[in-house]
């Protein structure tokens, strides 16, 4: 692990009623040593402990890929679905059971390639979901194919001479969708920031989209090496309503005050490639939340029958 990693995992647990981060662990993660997915899992477990969420009251929905094994490793309800389709499942679950906390975990192939259509529309539905895009810029599980987010020139099994297209930027794409209500970026090598970003995402009412930059130890170990080695290449977006991770200002000299309600600046910042930017790009809780606007009052079976009788009067001969 990188020397900059600040481990905040080992919280003391004095109260037996209280669930500790490790209580949210189910099976041992079977990712490769050094996989960025571990960092995301640790941050999520800390968040769950911080919020003291009941394991039966939350669900983790994923697609297919290394990162989509995530639900198997969390003590919660989980749905390890099919490639690219985590968002429709999560949307349906949330519509049926709005009281559950629903988390979605996708890889870059899952979200930005095979499931891209769902990503655009789920952003627009703005259902109250906490959405983690675990973006390591490569297809790992299928063994080293170029992903939409792979930097141009990436050597992979499907582009042995280097990938030919510039990468798709998930932040720009999400910020371009109407009704997008929460867009943030963080990185696996800055656990404090990762944790703080997930905390903000969880607290946001709406579709909280978090892109987590991470490295695949097998196929993209060096994709962020420059940024990991030289914190000056990273700019933190800070604001009282943004992601607030104490102490990081000592690590990252470059920081920018960015009001996350400013969509124009958010888009402009997402488009810039001069520095890597971590933090809250955009957040607006005023947008309609799909599971709120589609919630209808339950109706008893007897009442339904009474109404159906009236309905059938319309068709009576």
């Amino acid at each position: 692990m990188n020397s900059n990693v600040i481990s905040l995992l080992n919280l003391e647990n004095d109260n037996p009623q209280c669930l500790a981060a490790e209580d949210y662990q189910k099976d041992e993660g079977k990712w490769c040593a050094g996989c960025g997915d571990f960092g995301a899992l640790n941050a999520v477990k800390r968040l769950l402990a911080k919020e003291q969420l009941k394991p039966e009251k939350m669900a983790f929905v994923s697609g297919i890929g290394c990162s989509s094994r995530f639900p198997h490793y969390v003590n919660a309800y989980g749905f390890h679905g099919i490639h690219g389709r985590a968002l429709p499942i999560a949307t349906g679950l949330k519509l049926a059971r709005p009281e559950l906390d629903v988390f979605v975990v996708m890889g870059d192939g899952d979200c930005t390639s095979i499931g891209a259509g769902h990503w655009i529309h789920a952003t627009r539905y703005n259902a109250n979901l906490t959405v983690l895009l675990l973006d390591n810029n490569i297809y790992g599980l299928t063994k080293n194919q170029t992903s939409p987010t792979s930097p141009q020139g990436t050597i992979s099994n499907t582009s042995p001479s280097g990938s030919v297209l510039p990468p798709l930027d998930p932040l720009q794409a999400t910020l371009g969708v109407s009704n997008a209500s929460f867009v943030a970026q963080t990185a696996d090598w800055v656990p404090a920031h990762l944790y703080a970003t997930l905390q903000a995402a969880y607290e946001h009412r709406g579709f909280s989209f978090v892109r987590i930059l991470q490295r695949c130890p097998k196929f993209t170990p060096d994709v962020f090496t420059e940024q990991v080695k030289n914190p000056d290449l990273t700019e933190l977006l800070v604001h009282e309503n943004g992601v607030n991770a104490p102490g990081l200002d000592k690590l990252f000299k470059a920081s920018r005050e960015h009001d996350p309600t400013d969509i124009d600046e958010a888009r402009a910042l997402a488009q810039r490639t001069d520095l890597l930017r971590l933090g809250m790009f955009f957040r607006d809780e005023s947008f309609p939340v799909y599971d709120d606007i589609r919630t209808v009052s339950p109706v008893s079976a007897q009442e339904k029958i009474r109404k159906l009788e009236k309905e059938f009067d319309r068709y009576a001969v």
Binding site: G81, I89, A90, G92, L93, A96, L100, H118, H121
Partner: peptide
Amino acid sequence: IVHQAEDEIAAAGVALGASYGG
């Protein structure tokens, strides 16, 4: 409710998610 999904696949997925939810 009727949920008009973005495509046929998502329509099945949303229905499945709702069924999973009870």
